[in-house]
Design a protein around this nucleic acid. Sequence first.
DNA 1: TTTATATACCTAAGAAAATTATGTATATAA
DNA 2: TTATATACATAATTTTCTTAGGTATATAAA
Lengths: 112, 112
Amino acid sequence: MSTNPLLKGTLQTIVLKLLEDNKEMYGYEITQKVKETSGGGIVLTEGALYPALHKLEAEGLLETYTQIIDNRVRKYYRLTDQGGKEVTSKVKEAGEFIDQLQTLLNLKPAAK
Amino acid sequence: MSTNPLLKGTLQTIVLKLLEDNKEMYGYEITQKVKETSGGGIVLTEGALYPALHKLEAEGLLETYTQIIDNRVRKYYRLTDQGGKEVTSKVKEAGEFIDQLQTLLNLKPAAK
DNA sequence: TTTATATACCTAAGAAAATTATGTATATAA
DNA sequence: TTATATACATAATTTTCTTAGGTATATAAA
């Protein structure tokens, strides 16, 4: 698996945004969704994802319930009210950062 | 100063790209240039920048020379040949990552 | 004159957030 | 029966920051 130093710091925002769009998801589902949506470019490792989910839950941004499907455990996560507020500001922050980074790296599409 | 978790992983790429565009710069100059270009949104702390510069030099991507200006020391950095190659691939990587992240976070400008 | 700010370098301690490597367990396809 | 997919988790380690200091000169303000 590719070491992706660029991923650092964006994992939480990605997770919160996916849960905003999908109401509820379980961990494995998140890894698959991210891989699919990013065309395989972004791969969440379990060692990063699960601790991140636990942290977000401990901070009160996510809440969970567990379900058994086909004799296997699934832990579903969804945003709390506080998580709903956080996702908005984190996505906004990420957007601003991306904008500044594109400027610095000269990645802006040519102005019309 | 703002804690910026999004910065993680992009510092090296920013430094290399600035040195590609400016031939040579010294550390303090880099911090000012980044602050200015990003509209104050991205602030490089010295505790992050100097170790990063030293690491890039140790890896052979940067070379340096020191100069005294107004009785003060300035250490100029510039890309080595290897650094010149690296910057191209790192900026490309960053561009792809940004693209994928924008997709995940629904930050894409509306398609025409 | 002395104090604050800007310029200019640096490092060390600690925290945050990953990677890498495991471990457990079930279902299913080869 | 073996490999792959599904599904959770944690521990050790590494990377990369933040925070907090330290040294030193030039200049503007009080």
